[in-house]
Design a protein around this nucleic acid. Sequence first.
DNA 1: TTGTATTTAATGTAATTACATTTAATTTTA
DNA 2: TAAAATTAAATGTAATTACATTAAATACAA
Lengths: 154, 154
Amino acid sequence: MGISEALKQSKFPSEAAKAVVNAIYTGNWIVQQQQELLKPFGLTVQQYNVLRILRGQQGNPMTVLAITERMLDKMSNASRLVDKLVEKNLVLRRECPKDRRAVDVLILPAGLDLLTQVDQVQNDWGKHFDALGVSKLEEMNQILDEFRTVFSHN
Amino acid sequence: MGISEALKQSKFPSEAAKAVVNAIYTGNWIVQQQQELLKPFGLTVQQYNVLRILRGQQGNPMTVLAITERMLDKMSNASRLVDKLVEKNLVLRRECPKDRRAVDVLILPAGLDLLTQVDQVQNDWGKHFDALGVSKLEEMNQILDEFRTVFSHN
DNA sequence: TTGTATTTAATGTAATTACATTTAATTTTA
DNA sequence: TAAAATTAAATGTAATTACATTAAATACAA
């Protein structure tokens, strides 16, 4: 289903306006799918994202600021997301010895275990996209990058 | 800046995983830009979206359900969004004469005026994307549509 | 060194979102 | 028709987000 049918909007002012709407819509569409996948695990999309970021550190701690820099949605409050993950005993929070303003966050074995479980479901879900073929996915990544970058070259 | 630098993540499990992240990130990126643009007008992105949908009806009323079907984010509560717009005197809400369960919503002249003002700013913003060229934008729309559609063809 | 600025995280809050439930009207069906 | 099911919108609520402010630690500059 094209964006036009999805939103029951036959005309757009321009191809660019359509692309803007299409990008937002597609992002929301993915997030909603992810929400469904994550519900059984008691994780929000943002919490899942933070866990994956921490896993990517291979056991090294990260400060809250470093987490924020890697988050998909910079607006959401990393401090409170970490709170939730601490409550669930998925991560550990401790004062950073080098800089006592900062806070080190570490993923715990329980967090890694949970991610492993989620990975199964995520992989199955992601398999759908393989049908597009790697070159088309590369093209998509290329175009989305360009779409954002064209802004800097005002 | 490519998605890899934006998120400081050098490796992705697959091109598809990267595309998923890229689509979410790009959608959020646009929404944040729009948020900034709309702030001076006292509108949220969702409220703006509802106003544009109503304008598209050329003065004909729409029910809350019909608005929901056209919204970019189906999860947000059209009923309460309309509330906010009524408070600001941008739209009118009245009982639908044909079906008293339903509620007709109409954009008011003040709403149209506000949209006209926003249009100025939006158009300037959108101009950046023209640099990509129509054919590349068409390609982007085509790929995003395919990306979602590949799901139905499990 | 001492005062000022900056950085890092946490917190307060108002608004919004997610999700379930309720209310009222209409449609279906027995 | 009367009862049951469905539909449309509103509402209640808990959680989350947006945004500003605060608090504490560190860096910097006079």
